[in-house]
Design a binder for these strands. Structure first.
Lengths: 338, 338
DNA sequence: TTGTATGCGTTATCAG
DNA sequence: CTGATAACGCATACAA
């Protein structure tokens, strides 16, 4: 590779000191118009671009933000593999970062020690947490002074970091209320685990809908893994023979699994059983039946998270934000059979 | 943030020189057992971890690999948003990278100049190209000496870089042959554009199936954008009134769009029209009808690409590789109506 | 075997 | 206002 021009080359060509070049290019100090012109001229002739590595060393910043996903069985695949939710999030983050001159470092992290080390040795300027992590990681976080924004995380886990969320409680409520108003009474709530506050809030909203009608609240059905098609499929298989007439899922992905299992068992959706999803990923509009689901604006959330992080990094601490959700009624729900 | 221990701190604590510490930690030269022990002891006590930024400066390597996606309308979203193909690819790459001590820098790139600059100022050790880029980028590449592996790219575009592919021609053939053997004659081939060699090869395979039977080859239907649900949907809408009895799609995503459009037009799949996909992403097994498709092992491809890149970076240039594909017959295909 | 000195490309400090 | 010069943290050629 042809050696890249350094600041020294520019300085020599312009007949000034390295410092002068730096001043001009960073517009950090008054420089005589003539020097300035010479420097710019030389820089342009040599196609000079500052080296981020060297710059990082003195500035103690890397111009990189870290995007962290939880590791399940040593891979991020188990979390993100099947769900285009992450595609939208990452696309949004990458765009905001790139447009602000930052690069995105993507990694899966499991143990808190790794995390700390990773951040420090890379001199990351900011962090974005995608999803729920072991509580110990949040403890570790507090001891570092790196700006961070949490996504889909609730206060009890955060401490001092802004969090970007959606109104999960309302989402759960909307799904339940929709089914109740259709006339369903025996409704299952399918969660991937109530250790996750996101799931808890959705379940809370679900229960509120019942309570407001003075009905008893069904206990939740718990899938054994993360949001996966197969988790939904297994629960659907189990529920196919039950007396449930409707199933509320906490992701579109699991809803698809459920619907397929029901179909294989000869149970029709929505004629026999209604199913709702959560997220409204793109494909949900295209399946048959298309999915009645709780829509969240994923890219908006990702964009907001990245923007807040960058604001915070610039020294303007941003507040968290909770986005609204709305119910999108499609074909997977209908009144119960008589 | 509590100041991080540097090599100097370790040296002082161990009562040796900085150089000695470096030697021990990098195992670069023989060091007396005693010194070694003292250094390791001190390093461990101080929880010393070398700073990658500083290390990069002298070693001229960053321990980062860049994963590059093409930019469409200033965002990578338009390419990756709806397709879990990318989730699998990225998961696989991240895992291999992480396990080999590398971090993944993810970015969207459009103009060749940006690309060159990005690689140089970040001192990237290796590059992974996901998908097809403007030809000018390949030209720019040749002038740099950075190891790279191309994914889903054909020779004519590469030059000296190994490429990881699948047997696209065979995939196209399998899909067509399957439908022909079912008795279909009027089969549409839906491509997102024959500028992309991947699509060209699939179409070639498709045509071969016809030629081997001495049948005339249908001309392709071209969607106007990238692999998107909506691209498929629009073509499906157009094809709903046609005499085609089967449609071969070059991605599962577009196939879903097609199927939905047909459904909305009252055309049943597979009773009225058969549809095949390509990729076999996870959801294809769970939709109704489940999708007959050409399976490629996406994670295997991603893993291989990352491993080849790392091998090349270590000085053992790896060869490209073409993975096999196979037909997975599910519910979206059936013999034509009598 | 170990320590010293220098370079990597920038930015920050401090004289002039 | 400008320009040497010293960090920044690490690796390495060279000297001891």
């Amino acid at each position: 590779m042809k050696r890249r021009a350094t600041i020294k080359d520019v300085a020599e060509r312009a007949g000034v000191s390295k410092a002068a070049v730096s001043y001009v290019l960073n517009d950090i100090r008054k420089v005589s118009a003539e020097t300035k012109a010479r420097v710019l001229q030389a820089a342009s002739e040599l196609d000079y671009q500052p080296d981020f590595t060297a710059r990082s060393l003195t500035k103690r910043t890397s111009n990189m933000i870290g995007v962290i996903l939880p590791l399940v069985d040593a891979s991020i695949a188990n979390v993100m593999q099947e769900n285009t939710y992450y595609n939208e999030m990452i696309s949004a983050i990458e765009k905001v970062a790139r447009e602000n001159g930052f690069d995105v470092l993507l990694t899966g992290l499991a143990r808190p020690e790794e995390y700390r080390n990773w951040v420090q040795k890379r001199r990351l300027d900011g962090l974005l947490f995608l999803g729920l992590f072991p509580a110990s990681i949040y403890a570790e976080m507090r001891s570092m002074e790196v700006p961070a924004v949490l996504i889909d995380t609730y206060e009890e886990h955060t401490g001092k970091y802004p969090s970007v969320n959606i109104n999960d409680e309302k989402g759960g409520f909307l799904a339940a209320e929709h089914l109740l108003s259709l006339g369903h009474e025996n409704i299952a709530f399918l969660t991937t685990g109530l250790e996750n506050p996101v799931e808890v809030h959705r379940y809370k909203g679900f229960t509120r809908a019942f309570q407001e009608r003075g009905m008893t609240v069904p206990s939740p059905e718990t899938a054994e893994t993360t949001h996966r098609l197969e988790s939904g499929w297994m629960i659907g298989k189990k529920l196919a023979g039950s007396s449930r007439t409707a199933i509320v899922c906490t992701s579109d992905i699991t809803a698809f699994g459920v619907i397929r299992a029901l179909y294989e068992a000869g149970v029709r959706v929505p004629e026999d059983v209604s199913v709702t999803g959560f997220d409204d990923i793109h494909i949900s509009r295209y399946t048959t039946p298309s999915l009645t689901t709780v829509r969240q604006h994923i890219m908006q959330k990702g964009t907001a998270a990245a923007e807040k992080l960058i604001e915070t990094m610039k020294g303007h601490p941003a507040a968290g934000e909770t986005f609204d959700v709305k119910l999108v009624i499609r074909e997977s729900t209908a009144p119960p059979k008589q």
